[in-house]
Design a protein around this nucleic acid. Structure first.
Lengths: 226, 226
DNA sequence: AAGATGTTTCGTCTATGATCGAACCATGAA
DNA sequence: TTCATGGTTCGATCATAGACGAAACATCTT
């Protein structure tokens, strides 16, 4: 590969249309196999294989071998947030492209961003957590307050194991549609899982939409009122 | 250009080493000319020109034409933060960029720019005039307010003949050393002449340095305090 | 065991796009 | 005016990386 600043390496990885399609597919947070990703990008499996190893070498992807399949995911949360940030920028600057037309309202309302909740509801949750002082802005990041600790434990989220992880507990992620922050990090991920467990919401197959039930959304809005 | 998701367009813009070098140079926030950027990227000016127009079309850069120079900056803050985010992902520290402007401290302090005052003092004067509402930003230029009119007349500058000239009365000029604006136009020129007349300063023979006397600089700083 | 499916490696073709020389345009200086 | 300088446009060259066919490899199914 050509010499240049590291930022160019990442840029060129994201810059190929086939790879960009794969990456956006992986933004759903699901692990996808090499052939699924090939289909997603509209290329043959040989070509996809080459792309995938490049992206893995570039630190964008992680792979898990399972039987005769290889499952690929984004390497970590940061990759997801950077991709969302670029998509946000592209959406604002992309004058010519109106690919899926005026974006799907359901997608704006609630969707997964890698593994946490994004969209209007994600932003509102973040607002609420900040407003009530459960989370607090900390030098270049987010901190969990004592009140917040109590709140999450009350909501049946076990913080201890999360804090042992290498990935940050709280992280803010710029929302693609809203241009405001929502909660990422292992806590954001745990919250989304909890919503699934409570059957407040479920993933819509084959898309990034998170579909809340009527009752679930009501509970959600009450818990994270602003 | 190839079809693909918008994210790929941005990625490929960032992905070229030459362009990446230019973008990282611009991350300093300073405005740089096309040739400075060409040198930064180690390419000829023709090639740089092509890159720059692509990036401008892609919404990454804004340009400001001034005289025979073209000053480029990042289009807005969001572009900067996205670039920072990618650089963070690339786990790479921002390396040093080419130093801009003159090395001589006296030149940085006060010098002539064509026929008006530039350097630290020139920038400070501009700041002061804007801050006090004597000048005001107007669509693509600078306007003179009623207060400003009084102020300059008080300073024994006759505005009427200046306004009859073809060249604009007020013009903002990007400062070479500071990369911030100072006042150009016939008013800027008249002000410098007035400083000479008051013996606050004089031109240093054979250089662009404007040498203020101790007393003159004191008066100047009092008049254009910020 | 043979067959089917998923994935990678190899070889080759091809097209995109980065690059530069030369000429041209625009602006400022003499 | 003429000259110098910054910048762009045009044309041609050329390297790279993305694409696929074919074949090998790996793993599950029967």
């Amino acid at each position: 590969m050509k010499e240049g600043p590291d930022i160019a390496r990442l840029g060129s990885l994201i810059g190929d249309p086939a790879r960009a399609n794969m990456l956006t597919a992986l933004l759903s947070g699901k692990a996808l196999t090499a052939s699924e990703l090939a289909a997603e990008a509209g290329i043959t499996s040989q070509t996809a294989s080459a792309h995938l190893s490049k992206m893995e070498a570039g630190g964008l992807l992680a792979q898990r071998k399972q039987g005769r399949h290889r499952y690929f995911t984004l390497a970590d949360d940061e990759v997801g947030s950077v991709l969302e940030a670029i998509m946000g920028l592209a959406a604002r600057k992309g004058h010519l492209r109106t690919r899926t037309g005026p974006k799907d309202p359901a997608l704006r309302h609630a969707r997964v961003c890698y593994n946490h909740l994004a969209g209007d509801l994600g932003v509102q949750m973040m607002d609420s957590l900040l407003l009530r002082g459960y989370l607090t802005p900390e030098n270049e990041g987010l901190g969990l307050t004592a009140d917040g600790r109590a709140f999450f434990e009350e909501f049946a989220i076990d913080l201890e194991p999360l804090e042992k992880l290498r990935r940050p507990l709280c992280k803010s992620c710029l929302d693609w549609s809203n241009r405001r922050s929502h909660l990422a990090g292992s806590l954001g991920s745990a919250l989304l899982t909890r919503f699934y467990d409570l059957a407040w919401a479920k993933r819509l197959e084959g898309s990034r939409i998170v579909s809340f039930s009527a009752g679930g959304e009501k509970e959600f809005l009450r818990l994270f009122a602003v």
